[in-house]
Design a protein around this nucleic acid. Structure first.
Lengths: 246, 246
DNA sequence: CGACACGTTGAGATATATCAAACGTGGTGG
DNA sequence: CCACCACGTTTGATATATCTCAACGTGTCG
């Protein structure tokens, strides 16, 4: 099911079966996109939005010198560029980090949903505000945490988000990105990421090898990143729950 | 008029007179709030949202050691905690930076707007996405700019936002915050803010004294902060326009 | 006038960046 | 099957931005 993971386990915004069906019906097509491909360019007028089904995507801004800052990483179930619906054009680029499968939903269909199904519309709105909440947490991460804290915080967040959609067992998950990507997420250089990750590894807190993250000491990692998952608005407290539900 | 400044000069989302009236009618009450007062606490269930009429407000997250990171600064015309409407509860605190006048709008009234006036609802949605766009720009600021760049970028942004609501002449504006606030915005210490601002002053780029920002070299300030106002979705390109309109 | 918050300056410590080189490793073509 | 290439990772040495701590200055308000 295409919209399987959308808003899954989100407190107070789960979709009803009917709403899910409406959304499924709104999908105009499904596309496979290779790794490292730009999907939406800043400034371009948009006629549809993208639901990520499989793979990883990101949003970013490049600076004058070619340095890049990622402003979001998207996991399956995320409505990647839904912001582009009310805004009509995006202020940043959107690209794949890995090969990805996406579903496209025309804005025309969203118009109908907004006109006829205010409850569903509000849940779409909610989904974009979740992104904003994550943005805020990233601001905290960049503004107040040191390198180890930033890495720890990002890994805790990604672990929690992937777990919510059944892609992490709560301790380990696939993350097919480079150390340079991590640097662009954390506002650091890849050299420094490398050194700090080594120390986290040597402290037996976590490891990141051949695209797989293993968290040995989740509590320690959380402490390092001052991570508190409240801002993800997940329904089960903590991340201990199995992903049996739904 | 209470909603005078709301979405003013925002590309493709200006309110019609009727919509404006609807919003005005939705205001349940107006409050004056002293400086440095918490208005919304994280986690509390919300029954209304706050439109800022006059003064400055902010949203922030405190870390374990009492260090604070501001994640947003709000100027008159901003619908400060509209995020709390779909989300029901906020993940961060909201407070005044200066004495402020606010209008409160019950969520019940917003429900009616969403049910009956999808176009207006979409503009409310748009307003929250503008916040998200600003969050993203702040991420860029924190992740990729040095101290001078961060200060420059923040001042350019604030100048543009205030100008859009008629509170900056494009070169100077009142900004009643401390250097410590600036530090909490820029992810730096107040000591460093002080030093870097001195150097910006000595280069005749800008000055900030007794709560007033004067920009001598707007072009230079923009260059320093790599500031491009696209993400503010203002209708007039650049910031040269007088604020005659509307 | 004194208290208090805010701004300013100095000296030294530290985290992170920069530059440069070597080291895997998986994939590809000969 | 090997040689080689491209790409990402790892490490070292040095430079630099920012922090920390501590003191002093200045304006405002009761």
């Amino acid at each position: 099911m295409i919209t399987d993971k959308f808003l899954r386990r989100r407190r107070g915004a789960k979709l009803t079966p009917q709403e899910r069906e409406t959304l499924e019906a709104a999908v105009s097509n499904i596309r496979e996109i290779p790794s490292r491909q730009i999907v939406v360019e800043a400034g371009r007028t948009l006629g549809r939005s993208t639901l990520l089904i499989e793979g990883l995507m990101c949003r970013y801004r490049d600076d004058r010198n070619g340095l890049r800052q990622l402003v979001a990483v998207h996991v399956p179930g995320d409505f990647v560029d839904l912001h582009g619906y009310p805004l009509k054009t995006l202020d940043h680029d959107v690209a794949t980090l890995t090969a990805a499968r996406i579903a496209e939903i025309p804005h025309r269909s969203l118009d109908e949903i907004c006109a006829r199904q205010p409850d569903l519309a509000k849940k779409l709105w909610y989904a974009t505000l979740l992104d904003a909440a994550i943005h805020r947490e990233w601001l905290f991460r960049l503004g107040r945490l040191d390198a180890a804290g930033r890495i720890a915080h990002f890994l805790c967040e990604t672990n929690a988000r992937l777990e919510a959609v059944g892609l992490s067992d709560g301790r380990s998950f696939d993350l097919t990105i480079t150390q340079n990507d991590l640097a662009e997420i954390c506002g650091l250089t890849s050299v420094h990421i490398n050194r700090v990750m080594r120390s986290l590894r040597e402290e037996n807190i976590m490891s990141f090898r051949s695209s797989r993250v293993q968290i040995q000491d989740l509590e320690g990692l959380r402490r390092r990143g001052q991570f508190d998952p409240d801002y993800l608005y997940l329904d089960a407290l903590g991340t201990t729950a199995t992903d049996a539900a739904r």
